[in-house]
Computed example of a mutant assay.
Amino acid sequence: MAGNGPAPKARKVRRNADTVAQTVLRWERAEPPELPTFEIERDGELREFVWPGRTREWWQMWIDSPQAEHFGSSDWQYLLDTALIHARYWSGNLSLAGELRLRVAEFGATPSARARLRMVFAEADGADGGSGRSGGPSARERYGNLRSLPGGKTGKGT
């Protein structure tokens, strides 16, 4: 009979290792394009497409966003196509809501999308000055003078 206790656990081996090597691309930041002017056919005539004001605000929000500094040319082109979906949505085509939601999630438009993409804001990392504290009193400062009662008594008349 061998030693006491359970047998040591076997070393876990990662079974989902990548089978295909990663492709490393050269990064090139791209400047955001302006919303283009173009014509659409309406009632048999070509008319200039007018971007809704809400879409112009939305486009500027993306240009000013922290994510924008990480966008390449293909990202801006994809977002430009998404702007057209946004414009159609704000012009009353509500059937595009799902596609719009999926597309903006790819860019980290919501807190949950940023969490999924592992995006964090730099100010949040340094907000506590590296102390790891929120600025309020610590638990030791709040409860440092508390002591337990002997015998496990709670002080409630027992």
Rank of each mutant, 00 (worst) to 15 (best):
A2Y: 04
G5C: 02
G5D: 07
P6D: 09
A7Q: 08
K9S: 09
K9H: 02
K9F: 03
A10H: 10
K12L: 11
V13Q: 11
R14F: 11
R14D: 15
R14C: 10
R15Q: 12
N16L: 06
N16S: 13
D18R: 13
D18A: 15
V20M: 09
A21H: 08
Q22H: 11
T23I: 14
T23K: 14
V24Q: 08
L25V: 15
L25A: 12
R26F: 04
E28R: 10
R29A: 14
R29F: 01
E31W: 00
P32I: 00
P32K: 04
P33H: 05
P33K: 01
P33V: 02
T37E: 10
T37C: 01
T37V: 08
T37H: 04
F38W: 07
E39A: 06
I40V: 15
D43Q: 13
D43G: 04
E45Y: 03
E45K: 12
L46N: 08
L46A: 08
L46P: 01
F49E: 06
V50Q: 13
W51N: 01
W51R: 03
P52D: 12
R54E: 15
R54N: 10
R54I: 15
R56V: 10
W58Q: 02
W58M: 03
W59N: 01
Q60D: 09
Q60L: 11
M61G: 14
M61T: 13
I63N: 00
I63K: 13
P66D: 14
Q67N: 05
Q67T: 03
A68P: 06
E69R: 07
E69C: 03
S74R: 05
S74C: 00
D75S: 04
L80Y: 00
L80V: 00
T82R: 00
L84H: 09
I85G: 02
R88C: 04
Y89S: 02
Y89R: 07
W90E: 15
G92V: 09
G92W: 03
G92N: 08
S95K: 13
G98F: 11
L100Y: 11
R101T: 15
L102F: 05
R103L: 12
R103W: 02
V104K: 07
A105S: 15
E106A: 04
F107R: 01
A109S: 11
T110N: 05
S112A: 14
A113S: 15
R116T: 12
R118D: 09
R118V: 08
R118E: 14
M119K: 11
V120F: 13
V120N: 13
V120C: 09
V120G: 11
F121I: 04
E123N: 09
A124M: 07
D125T: 10
D125L: 14
G126S: 11
G126A: 14
D128N: 10
G130T: 04
S131R: 07
S138I: 03
R140N: 05
E141A: 15
E141H: 03
Y143M: 09
G144W: 09
L146Y: 14
R147D: 06
R147W: 07
R147L: 10
R147A: 13
L149I: 14
K153E: 07
G155E: 04
K156T: 11
G157E: 07
T158L: 10
